[in-house]
Design a binder for these strands. Structure first.
Length: 419
DNA sequence: TCTGGGGTCCTAGGACCC
DNA sequence: TCTGGGGTCCTAGGACCC
């Protein structure tokens, strides 16, 4: 048999994190709220039982649950990130192949384990013992089915946090008891489309012809059909790929009308995103700013827009990114609206080993200056700022957009840059 | 009067995930 | 009065370039 997958998912993660540091909250309804305490982003089982929904605006409940002792916490992402790292470190010690899928989920390969259920229970008990976070474990021949298994591990009381969907009969039974939208990758819109085409249940989807589904819905849907049949198409991704973009955005606590206030926010977002980018060893030459009015206030005139700017060279320098962001903001700013949200997006991120040390701006090293002249000449010749180099490493060709790195230029550039 | 084709970039939006 | 934040991938049309 193919190596089975386990999906380990933390139960009600943010609420569970709060409980680790406040044990008296155990057994009581707990909700964690989004930024500005706007809406519900995590609920303990007790809070779910009260009918509090994911994403619900908290103001709908505030009065109702005041006296019912629902404990409310503002979110603390630093804490959750730290707890997540503890859980992932624990899991990493218990399997040779771990894929961190999200802040509270990980896929594990269970290749080589004889007693899958015993191992799953071991994972579960070790994580709660070492971190205080309860987890559920779903095991199946494919990632998609492991997701389904995890759902039952969480919901069935007798499962006690572990569910195996290895036998075809068990898979049939599980798929018969869920909706299309319960499947990983199918949400409301796609489910509606499928239903229009006569596919109304997960079992019907599994029975569909994979090739035909590819024609009608694309390669992603074909993979889903195969995964439902127990043919693994989605391998464990052991290496976390570099981020392609980094966003820093916030809804304002109140509606904002003046430009200086938005400028201030955009400055903060730029600095925050730049810091995050540097921590990940990345840099960028593409940045965008967006601002939005409050779409829930239908009586207000609406405006939402984004503007991108390109820097002459990739950088991770906060001051340069702030300047660029203000330029973008100036281009899209419209007076007379009441703004609710703004953000800064850093895009087309590149490895920072190409751009470290502000080298593109004022290199002191004579060789670097020489290379800079060559770069200028090349950029002049091609009419674009597409060439750069690293001071610390070997001179190298890089591009502001990866798709501009065409092979016919690469060799020539490499030669010219070798001072 | 006829009026290409390939390519990139930007903006916008849709769909999905956590 | 109060409705999150951070990601990925895909598509489409217009501007612009060669």
């Amino acid at each position: 048999m193919v190596a089975p997958f386990a999906l380990v998912d933390c139960n009600n993660f943010y609420a569970s994190c709060e409980r680790v540091f406040e044990p008296k909250l155990r057994g009581r309804p707990v909700v964690v709220l989004s930024n500005n305490d706007g809406c519900v982003i995590a609920r303990s089982n007790e809070a779910k039982a009260l009918g509090i929904g994911m994403g619900d605006p908290w103001h709908l409940y505030r009065a109702r649950f005041a006296e019912q002792a629902v404990t409310v916490r503002s979110s603390n992402y630093t804490l959750y990130g730290d707890m997540s790292a503890r859980v992932m470190r624990t899991l990493a010690g218990l399997t040779p192949s771990l894929e961190i899928y999200s802040i509270d989920e990980a896929f594990l390969s269970l290749a080589g384990f004889e007693d899958l259920e015993a191992h799953a229970r071991h994972l579960r008990s070790t994580v709660i013992q070492w971190t205080g976070i309860p987890v559920s474990v779903g095991i199946a021949p494919t990632k998609l089915l492991a997701k389904v298994a995890n759902r039952f591990a969480k919901r069935e009381a007798h499962a006690d946090g572990v569910k195996l969907l290895i036998d075809p009969a068990a898979q049939d039974d599980a798929l018969a008891r869920i909706e299309l939208t319960d499947l990983w990758g199918i949400a409301r819109r796609m489910a509606a489309r499928l239903k229009c085409e006569g596919i109304e249940t997960p079992l019907q989807l599994r029975a569909a012809d994979p090739q035909d589904m590819r024609q009608r819905f694309g390669v992603v849907m074909q993979r889903m059909v195969l995964e439902l049949r127990g043919m693994s198409c989605l391998p464990i991704e052991l290496v976390t790929p570099d981020r392609k973009s980094i966003v820093s955005s916030r809804s304002f606590g109140r509606l904002i009308k003046t430009r200086p206030e938005v400028e201030e926010a955009v400055t903060t977002f730029s600095a925050r995103a730049a810091a995050k980018m540097r921590r990940q060893g990345l840099a960028t030459a593409h940045l965008a700013v967006f601002i939005e009015t409050n779409p829930f206030r239908e009586q207000d005139p609406q405006y939402h827009a984004s503007r991108a700017v390109t820097l002459p060279v990739a950088t991770a320098d906060t001051a340069k990114l702030i300047t660029a962001a203000q330029t973008a903001l100036a281009a899209l700013w419209r007076p007379g609206y009441r703004y609710k949200k703004a953000g800064v997006m850093l895009m087309d991120l590149v490895k920072a080993d190409r751009v470290q040390g502000g080298l593109f701006d004022a290199p002191d090293d004579p060789k670097a200056k020489m290379r800079m002249r060559t770069v200028d000449a090349l950029n002049g010749r091609y009419g674009r700022d597409t060439v750069g180099f690293g001071v610390t490493g070997q001179p190298r060709v890089w591009t502001l957009r990866s798709d501009m790195l065409s092979p016919r230029y690469t060799t020539e550039w490499e030669e010219l840059l070798r001072v």
